[in-house]
Nucleic acid binder design. Sequence first.
RNA 1: GCUCCCUUCGUCUAGUGGCCCAGGACGCUGGCCUCUCACGCCGGAAACAGGGGUUCGAGUCCCCUAGGGAGCGCCA
Length: 471
Amino acid sequence: MKVRTRFAPSPTGYLHIGGVRTALFSWLYARRHSGVFILRIEDTDRERSTQAAVDAILEGMHWLNLDYDEGPWFQTHRFDRYKEVVGQLLDAGHAYRCYCSKDDLERMRSEAMARGDKPKYDGTCRNLVSPPSAGAPYVVRFRNPDSGEVTIEDQIQGLVTYQNKELDDLIIARADGTPTYNLTVVVDDMDMAITHVIRGDDHLNNTPRQINIFNALKITPPIYAHVPMILGPDGKKLSKRHGTVSVLQYRDEGILPEALLNYLVRLGWSHGDQEVFSREEMINLFDIKDVNKAAAALNPDKLLWLNQHYLKQGDTGRLADLLGDAMREQGITVELGPNPEDLFLVQRERFNNLIEMANKSRCFYEEITNYDQTSAENFLKPEAIEPLRRLQQEFEGIADWRDETIHSALTTVAESLGLKLGKIAQPLRVALTGAAVSPSIDKTARLLGRERTLSRLKRAIEFIEGSRIIP
RNA sequence: GCUCCCUUCGUCUAGUGGCCCAGGACGCUGGCCUCUCACGCCGGAAACAGGGGUUCGAGUCCCCUAGGGAGCGCCA
């Protein structure tokens, strides 16, 4: 039988990191088994579903290249079908109309709680023969078996058994006739012939109810795999407090999709000691049976480490384009300096995300407005004037502006003055970039270009001379 | 409250009764490299939640306790 998995987010909030990992696992499982991956939008909650959230889900999936073979399907387009199944269940006696009001239910719940019982429906309307009054509003409840048990053979959690008497008669259709979650998932998973349901373990408790509905429909339920939750870096439940709401925010913060996917796949899943996985490796090695049972906390540092790994290893052309985009986003006029690829080659090992790389590359595109105070105090001192002047002369004589020629100018000056390279490299660095940290000095000068290098040198010398007269 | 689930270094994890006085990775940390930062390389500290069993032998099996989480919605 062909494997068919699905990712079924509800567009009531943004696509967050936990949802993405669930999607990733479902996608990997389908790809691993040459199966079909389906995207289904569970938008039956008309009140809270938004188009913006739908767009964010689609954009997020696209950004991560989690491609789906079928869908996106929208549950709101399938109301007729759900109604049909509710009718079927009603006719077969597996469901019944319940006329209890919300107030009745509320009272029922609080009374049960007070008794120390589970706040479940008491079955008042279970065996009603006729409505309390003609045209009285009602919901439809599923008639859950009241004895026996349901065992889930969960691929991750193992065997989990529930007693039917612990389960109550859940509502499958609201008073306005619209279907509820537990009914729609079952109908969709049935109609879409889903073979493996991979979802968050917050759904584990719903599973026995869904299995009972499948049974009532005389359909074999899919195989279930409930993946544990993802926690914030503090080990607490993921929330907006942790900063990142939508996955797209990771993109906007300079994270590469391959880094995020690699990071996520190792959250709860492992293959021995391997840490780095290409898409192909993930697909070939992934197995649900290797997924852990315990919740995992996010580790931002490790994500960044992977991001840097992919920055160092990835395709230069593509990454340079992304860097160019990031610079433009940061308001840098890319045309005013080295092309992004030359810059990227020099910067790729020095930063772990593109945004920071872009921001810290400003000096190649914009004039220096002021020197970093500490750097200037440490290196733009009177004794630096001589080395800087000599460099000026040497640089003026260079016709072929390359790393090597620049570097040899540096060593020539250093040797002639009997100084260590660092003694002239640091003043030069501050002169050229405004601060004491930059790529290696020869590359920095090369990227800057000969003219810009010379004018900044001149300005630094003037700065030092000027500061000499200021006490 | 009731039902269900979970528990190895700070974090992600390896480990399926002896190979483990517990391995890898991130982070932290000492050093090397070095024109700064970074990269890279070498080294270090750091964990089986607690208690009972079972067994010649337990991180690995069983029970209990504690802690954490989820569900109990006319949300999904």
